[in-house]
Design a binder for these strands. Structure first.
Lengths: 170, 170
DNA sequence: GAGTTTACGTCAGCGTTGTTGACTTTCCAA
DNA sequence: TTGGAAAGTCAACAACGCTGACGTAAACTC
């Protein structure tokens, strides 16, 4: 493995395909691309007092309106305290509304306000511009492959969350 | 745009293909997949006193041995002070060696020590396991598409750095 | 009905990693 | 020889993760 030729013991095209060098390049591509992926919303957020964590919270509240704090915790993969710090400011700033649950009053259901939806739109528009142009340049087949690989790269739990969101939104 | 049908004004398959909903799903896929992407090395790093920033520095020093601090700065996209904090600990711990430049003595050329290479191997092995398995499951065509989209998603500067690294190692 | 668990909020403290700003040292080049 | 680039350092700060502890209310379970 340390010789850079890969651990694959298959023959034919698979050996070429799965060399350590190819994988290393993909790792770098992932790193550089993710930088681009977050760059546009980040630029918008610095002008406000918000960061990437706020963007993520807003994104998922928009995707799953009425979601509970616990549910959101699972999606974001952070601690309650970490999320709370973000939610507190968003609620205080009138971007997010927290409603006590009807059937279970311990739960808080989260919704974007009008202002919250506006910010979400601004942020996701910015992010989609880059995605759309990359998708257009790469072509439909490349995009299909892109999504397939991303899905298989997720942790199983996250894949489950991802697919559930996908189903509930068409 | 707010109606969720996309900004595309083209007709035919492109309209279906580039809906805001499709793009939104891709954004989520990118988010969840990146979490998986970093999860394995992160697990190794917590046991040491290191974080993701150390991993990135080690990765690129390994990829471009003898690179200068300034060069590394550009690749990582962080400030000199931020990188310096990381490099200092890596040098103190004997994982990275800093050599004064011969032609230009202001420059420091960075190399991994034996111990540094060992850690790099451990980290990238862990990261490659997931990539390799995702690539195998998704198949060669999906992988080609994956890489195409990632490359078109990068900022032009980053794409240039990426391609340069690729040439020098491919 | 009492005791336990669950959901949520909060306080305090800490670590990593990013930022600016100011300053010094070294050294190349005009 | 002087200006400026490269590198390093110090200080201060912010975003955003974390753990641990504590409190409250509601829901459950025996």
């Amino acid at each position: 493995m340390a010789d850079g030729r890969g651990t694959s013991s298959h023959s034919g095209e698979n050996l070429l395909f799965l060399t350590d060098e190819q994988l290393r390049q993909a790792i770098e591509a992932m790193f550089f691309a993710y930088r681009g992926f977050t760059a546009d919303p980040d630029r918008i957020l610095v002008d406000m007092a918000y960061g990437r964590a706020h963007h993520r919270a807003i994104h998922f509240i928009n995707r799953a309106p009425g979601t509970t704090v616990n549910n959101l915790l699972g999606l974001l993969g952070v601690t309650k305290q970490s999320l709370n710090r973000v939610l507190r400011t968003l609620i205080a700033d009138g971007l997010v509304e927290s409603q006590v649950g009807k059937s279970d009053k311990r739960e808080r259901h989260l919704y974007l306000t009008e202002a919250g939806r506006a910010l979400e739109q601004t942020l996701s528009d910015a992010q989609r511009v880059r995605m759309r142009s990359a998708f257009r340049d790469a072509g439909p087949e490349a995009v299909a492959g892109f999504r397939t690989v991303l899905e298989t790269m997720m942790d199983p739990e996250m894949r489950h969350s991802y697919l559930r969101l996908k189903e509930n939104s068409g």
